[in-house]
Amino acid sequence: MNKGMSEIVKTISKIVSPFIIIFGISVIFYGHLTPGGGFPGGVIISASFVILLLAYGKEKILSKLSLYKSDILHDIGALMFLSVALAGFIGGTFFLNIFDKGKLFSLWSGGNLIFSNIAIGLKVGTSLFLGIILLSMVRIVYKENKIEFYEKKEDIK
């Protein structure tokens, strides 16, 4: 995963990957009407970033979405889910569903299901992307069978 792949793979993954992200967002947002929800949508969004990582090499992806930014997004997802749960204290108990439940089969229905789906999707997506990109930042020095870790091109001598 250190170097990129050939030109054909780079072009095709550049064209296809925005559609995968939009499909993942649609699975998250309509999670209370169609099969899906927070968990499959989050994994689909992280899969689209993994396709870009495999095609372009990891230096280019780390320059666009660094480890620091995805760490911040990870924390925002977890805190958003906790605040939706703590907002139930306004009604009386922990995790009470206090928002207005609209009509059946429309987009705004089900109370706090939409916010929970968005929070879980953000959290799971960035978690799995972090796990995979950390596993690929390892390089083997072939002379003495050691392993080193590096991030920028200047570390390779």
């Binding site: 999670g31 209370h32 009407l33 169609t34 099969p35 899906g36 929800g37 927070g38 749960a85 995790f95 569903n97 439940k101 609209g102 009509k103 059946l104 089969f105 229905s109 089900g110 109370g111 706090n112 299901l113 929970s116 789906n117 879980i120």
Partner: peptide, 18 residues
């Protein structure tokens, strides 16, 4: 009561949220 069409999502996020 909850007016959600997907029962599995309603169980995961509202009835069994812990």
């Amino acid at each position: 009561k909850l007016k959600a069409a997907n029962v599995v999502t309603a169980i995961v996020l509202d009835f069994r949220g812990y």
